[in-house]
Design a protein around this nucleic acid. Sequence first.
DNA 1: TATAAGCGCAATTATTCGGTTGCGCAAATA
DNA 2: TATTTGCGCAACCGAATAATTGCGCTTATA
Lengths: 106, 106
Amino acid sequence: MRRDIFQAIADPTRRAIIGLIALQAMTPNALAEHFDTSRQAVSKHIKILTECELIKQEQKGREIYYSLELEKMKEIDRWLEQFRTMWETRFNQLDEVLSIMKEQKQ
Amino acid sequence: MRRDIFQAIADPTRRAIIGLIALQAMTPNALAEHFDTSRQAVSKHIKILTECELIKQEQKGREIYYSLELEKMKEIDRWLEQFRTMWETRFNQLDEVLSIMKEQKQ
DNA sequence: TATAAGCGCAATTATTCGGTTGCGCAAATA
DNA sequence: TATTTGCGCAACCGAATAATTGCGCTTATA
């Protein structure tokens, strides 16, 4: 079973969950109310997010509050870094200039 | 058929393809040599990447050179921005401090 | 104490995914 | 011109995915 952060954020519901618990810790039931789906479905998403360490939990009585492990989100940022370097150093625009120059030659 | 950029980068082979064609335009055959998979499998990935506009192509005779649509990668960056703001403003560390303070109270 | 609420886990199901195989077509090459 | 090469497309298959349903357990509440 592949379980990495990229697979975790592939699902739109999970991205929404991430967005919600980034702001405040929430219980599965509270989360489920935000979506047109069951608590069990939300719990399954939480399980996946937990398995790739994107989530931390705090038990309060019979309730479990889930919140985002922000540090883990940096993994996406680190992967993106190589491409950010490219668009920031305007490699893209350079490429376009080269294309135009090439066309003018022909 | 869901087809967004987050679903596109969920697959490790596709992320590798993205990394390769970010540096230089490549044909499906050239790409397939980098992986332990067939050209057809690579072509399927390319199709998916094309469908979410992550890739542009240039036909040269019977060969097709694929390269990255760098601009589209920014979409991931934009989604990540909300979380980057959080870890850059050290909300995370603040949260830890609060936890420690709470523990000390008890 | 009986009931309700919050939760995780397991079984089930329809759908999607990643891959292979087998075409057919157009461009390059012998 | 005959053959090879590069490619996309469609059919097929096993595995993974997302969701539902039905538990059982623990903690609140009446």
